[in-house]
Design a protein around this nucleic acid. Structure first.
Lengths: 146, 146
DNA sequence: CATATTTCCTATCTGATTACTCTGATGTAG
DNA sequence: CTACATCAGAGTAATCAGATAGGAAATATG
């Protein structure tokens, strides 16, 4: 399960993705729109900023915007920043690999084989979906009957 | 990420799945073979027993065996028992559904839509793989060249 | 320049969860 | 009866989740 932090990050990023790329949103605006705790959200946006997903401007007229186009930010990037590995076991993680302490023969571990497939399935979805795509799915083409 | 508990449970179940269905293994035997903390494993097997995946016999000559054939025990069952929901968000969980507190319009949540696909992908792998299958993948047909 | 605004940064807090261990009760075979 | 093994529950230390608090730094505006 994703942490609240990660979910909030995704909600905030989607809110920014809905705006024109030069429009700055205040933390408090995002918090209100998405119904999120303001202070916590502030910390989250800070982290997203440090990781280059978001850019900010301080002082009056300041706020946050996406640091790059919404089709270049994937769910996978966000989850990895906020929660770490996508993989169900560290020993099948591509970006956060770590050997299992108890493991004697990693190559022939059946559980690992299964979990690798799970990891790949998760990564395929999350790395294959950008903020822009998620947004587009939500707003189906007008005139296209349901 | 799966908990250690869940990983240990899978390791223990795979160990049992390798044995003939009537053979009882001691907790200490499993712990030694799989390199797991004995007391912790004991608690885990107890939980698997309560949930009907494993059967036990006490006293001298006792031990644990699978409660049903290895092809009827799926990874999904084990993970749900030990760690709960497979889904990345509770609001897309089939077995552990819970609404998000901050959510205003679940039907139109774009994040939810993405996470539903992730959940389905995870569930397809985990519910689609039994202990028997995992075992079979590990032991490729002899005579079949690599 | 003064001031209001807004992000940036560090620190802290509380409660829950994780990963175990300990002690003893209960059941079973010989 | 007794050695063996699971069953049961409490206990514990460390970590993490989910926040909040308070102030420093930057910036637009008058």
């Amino acid at each position: 399960m994703l942490s609240q932090k990660c979910k909030y990050a995704l909600l905030a990023l989607m809110a920014l993705a809905r705006e024109p790329s030069d429009k700055l949103l205040l933390v408090s605006e995002i918090a209100e729109r998405e119904n999120l705790p303001r202070k916590f959200l502030e910390a989250i946006l800070l982290e997203l900023n440090r990781n280059g997903l978001v850019r900010s401007r301080r002082g009056r007229g300041g706020g946050y915007a996406l640091a790059k186009p919404a089709d270049l930010i994937t769910f996978g990037q966000v989850v990895r920043i906020m929660d770490g590995p996508l993989a169900p076991l560290a020993c099948v993680s591509v970006n956060y690999y770590r050997r299992c302490d108890e493991c004697r023969d990693e190559q022939n571990c059946e559980i690992r084989r299964v979990m690798r497939r799970v990891r790949d399935a998760i990564a395929a979805e999350l790395d294959g979906t950008s903020l822009a795509q998620a947004l587009a799915e939500g707003r189906p083409v007008p005139g296209m009957a349901a």
